[in-house]
Write a protein that binds this DNA or RNA. Structure first.
Lengths: 252, 252
DNA sequence: GTAGACCCTGACGTAACGTCAGGGTCAAGG
DNA sequence: CCTTGACCCTGACGTTACGTCAGGGTCTAC
């Protein structure tokens, strides 16, 4: 019960050093060590390795793989389903490449020169980052998320109430300025925006002005967030987003 | 006529730095530089890049790609045909992976545990080395080329002229001895042979006496090289080859 | 009981770029 | 005309994912 490192390496056609490396970086730590320090890989470890190798084939960096697989909400079935779709996509992209090679062969035979675009457009269609984003959304394990999760776990009911009060006070000030027709890049508007940022920073996760600017964009782009502001005042989402942008842009 | 590095990078979805790197190692040196040092990529350069990226997709290391593509006997059509077959193989292997994912999904759903072998055997079927061997056999080229490429790319016109002068001086001494009827294993002949070896060593790539002996054989075996010597004096190719062999055979 | 195959932990090397720093180039606009 | 922003250059150091020893224990097999 448990395979040696050499056996696993042989089966998966990877080097022993590779498995050492995965152990070192905490990506795949074998569940058992013998008395004498030998690594032993259980069936579960082997299943993990399979996942890792699928992700790797799909171009995920090892750090990303580790984050995904160690997330508490990681689900093997979901991961496999996603991998299946990605492999299909990659196969489709490979088919495109075959077409491009055929086109190139025909061009050479016919003495024709293809355009630069025709020759190069097949590359880079397949971007792992596009999937990384999906994986991140699915298992939402950004650093910010981790921080937020570990902090809010310890929050009591009163904590939540205090946060709500502070957030509401901030919302009130926001609406006041909006109703008064104050421009989003007015110092007072930026002040309120920064207040909102610090709220996040104190209660959930480290939030720089830069990161807040990203959030600001989401507030208008994502209907779920937008609705939160729009139900207070129509046009408030955009106004607030602009205020955040102005706030993040100022020198210091 | 000629695209900037940024344009090419954009079309091929690679970074500018990547193209810089390919230039540095002599894999893809753009055929034109503007007055101000800007790289300009011609249609031929773009076609080269396409080849490079196909090989890369197939897992070839860059050094290998450079060796293959810079070999004088390299043939674009042959390469494309080979790449087409390899891409097909890779697609087949990807299909196997999809099957493996499906099997894993079924296993999870059914609560079954697959054997380690079943889980891992799909990886590593696709070994670029198997193709590298084929490519090397086809375009047969050694490590020496990589060295030569990276050195010669920094050579100026004057460098080339100096090399030509030195090579010609060596040729003259060679012909003098040949005309005088000096035997190839005469110390003077061996001296000239060693001079020729050091020329290669200094200007292009590390060239031991042993390697030079191989080159010597090629000087008579390969008509392209043989012609170089034969046009100076009939029989010179063989004489020089023998001199090289004698030189490489002497103890030190 | 010892040879040969396998395992361990450092530690340094390598390939293929990423990522600045510091500094020219160039077309568009004020 | 000149300046500003997008683009280009050359170093040079950093990073990822291992490869490749060195030095030394472990474990069956004849």
């Amino acid at each position: 019960m448990g395979l040696s490192i050499g056996e696993v390496a042989g089966l998966a056609s990877v080097s022993v050093r590779t498995l050492h490396h995965y152990d070192e970086i905490g990506l795949l730590v074998p569940s058992v060590r013998t008395e004498s320090g030998y690594r032993l890989y259980s069936d579960a470890d082997v299943a993990m390795l399979q996942q890792v190798l699928f992700f790797k084939e799909l171009g995920f960096p090892l750090g990303e793989i580790a984050r995904i697989m160690h997330d508490p909400s990681f689900d093997r079935l979901e991961a496999l389903t996603m991998q299946r779709r990605m492999l299909d996509d990659k196969a489709a992209q490979l088919a495109l490449m075959v077409e491009a090679v055929d086109a190139a062969i025909e061009a050479v035979k016919g003495g024709v020169t293809l355009s630069a675009e025709d020759m190069l457009e097949v590359f880079g269609d397949f971007d792992p980052k596009q999937y990384e984003a999906e994986a991140e959304q699915k298992w939402g394990n950004t650093e910010a998320y981790a921080q937020s999760a570990s902090r809010t776990k310890r929050y009591t009911k009163e904590d939540w109430q205090r946060y709500k009060d502070e957030a509401e006070a901030n919302g009130v000030r926001m609406v006041e300025l909006f109703d008064a027709g104050v421009a989003p890049d007015d110092p007072r508007a930026m002040e309120v925006a920064d207040e909102a940022r610090l709220l996040i920073d104190r209660w959930f996760y480290t939030c720089s002005r830069e990161m807040h600017a990203c959030l600001g964009e989401m507030y208008v782009a994502d209907p779920r967030f937008k609705a939160n502001y729009e139900k207070m005042r129509e046009g408030l989402a955009q106004w607030f987003s602009d205020a955040i942008k102005a706030n993040s842009a100022r020198s210091e």
